[in-house]
Simulated assay, not measured.
Amino acid sequence: MEELLYSLIQLAIEHKASDIHFIVKQDHMDIQFRNDLGMEKIEQDIWDKGVFEYMKFIAGFDLTNPLCPQSGQFSVQLDTKEIFCRFSVIVNQSIQTGVLRLLRTNPSMAIDQLTQDSKSISFLKSLTNCRQGLVIFTGPTNSGKTTTLHAILHEIACKDQYNVISLEDPIEIEDELYLQLQINEAMGFTYEKGIEELLRHDPDVILIGETRNAYTARMVIRAALTGHMVFTTLHAKNALESLHRLLDFGLSEYDLKNTLTAVISQRLYKTKDIFRKECVYEILDAQALDHAIEKHEYPKEHRKLEDEIQNAVEQGYIFDPQAQFDIKDFQR
């Protein structure tokens, strides 16, 4: 069974898949790969329900409670590379659905490789010199937030001047230049507990992988107020919506004005080169950021994310139909 699972994961990697989707009906199992082209159905008669049940076992599921939605994790060694896998299952009547996310702990990219927009590159590089503050990155899943953050942390760590520590769930990009801590909720090492422990390790620069709730938001603000440079992510549609979410978490406008360095919203698009993608950034900082915090709206001169996406299309940086759908969505 182990060899069958490994061969499935190897095939998914060859298809450049980020996730493997399963639908199990009685003894039949459908498999789809999610990759840059969308969902790809795999016609096969090799992998059956036994592989699905085996993944539950190695992911540490409670097998005595099969009807409850569950998730777990495991890792596999393919050639000389470790693949971290996160498996989740939902049962609905006679159907089981599962998703196996493949996290290949890729090496970090350089800031110059993220985008062709010179202003964005210049701003991201300027963040590597900041000694105190808070930078929030926002965007949907697979928008490049993790890649951008690790590119920034890598450049900071290369200066060999600051103690850089990250707190992540899971660690998607490994970097030997700084300490990376893995969330393990089963062992009680949550984001909340992790931040408390992390602050005792005398950090200069901190990455909190995700600000999920009001408590984490308050701890992030506390870390920034006590002399640290803090980076984190937040699920929101754009930079302005991120501010609204922080206020909904119970933070005050005073807290935000005294800690926030920038809020950066981003999307990731295909380019003419099939081997690379382009990050598009909306950067809300300085006076525009203060205005947005006080007035709860963008200043008129601010370039919103849809403006930056349109510019990337016009400049020929991106060639992706999704860009036009996103622009229309923002303009609703």
Results as ranks from 00 to 15, higher is better:
residue 167 L to T: 01
residue 268 L to G: 01
residue 317 Y to N: 11
residue 304 K to P: 01
residue 186 A to Y: 05
residue 319 F to T: 13
residue 217 A to N: 03
residue 205 V to C: 07
residue 138 T to H: 05
residue 16 K to T: 09
residue 4 L to M: 09
residue 167 L to I: 07
residue 20 I to M: 05
residue 21 H to T: 04
residue 172 E to R: 12
residue 146 T to A: 07
residue 158 C to P: 00
residue 222 R to Q: 13
residue 276 R to W: 06
residue 148 T to D: 08
residue 159 K to Y: 04
residue 87 F to I: 08
residue 25 K to P: 00
residue 19 D to P: 00
residue 181 L to D: 02
residue 161 Q to R: 13
residue 300 K to W: 01
residue 26 Q to L: 12
residue 162 Y to H: 11
residue 229 M to S: 02
residue 308 E to K: 11
residue 200 R to I: 07
residue 275 F to I: 07
residue 170 P to Q: 10
residue 297 E to W: 00
residue 294 E to F: 08
residue 111 I to C: 02
residue 215 Y to K: 09
residue 175 D to G: 08
residue 297 E to A: 14
residue 21 H to E: 05
residue 179 L to E: 06
residue 176 E to V: 14
residue 27 D to G: 02
residue 213 N to Q: 02
residue 254 Y to K: 14
residue 21 H to N: 08
residue 268 L to C: 03
residue 81 K to V: 14
residue 276 R to L: 12
residue 137 F to I: 06
residue 330 F to Y: 15
residue 173 I to N: 07
residue 236 A to T: 15
residue 223 A to C: 04
residue 140 P to G: 07
residue 135 V to L: 07
residue 97 T to A: 10
residue 287 Q to C: 05
residue 20 I to F: 06
residue 39 M to A: 09
residue 308 E to W: 01
residue 30 D to T: 10
residue 254 Y to Q: 14
residue 315 Q to W: 10
residue 245 R to K: 15
residue 241 E to V: 13
residue 113 Q to L: 07
residue 42 I to E: 00
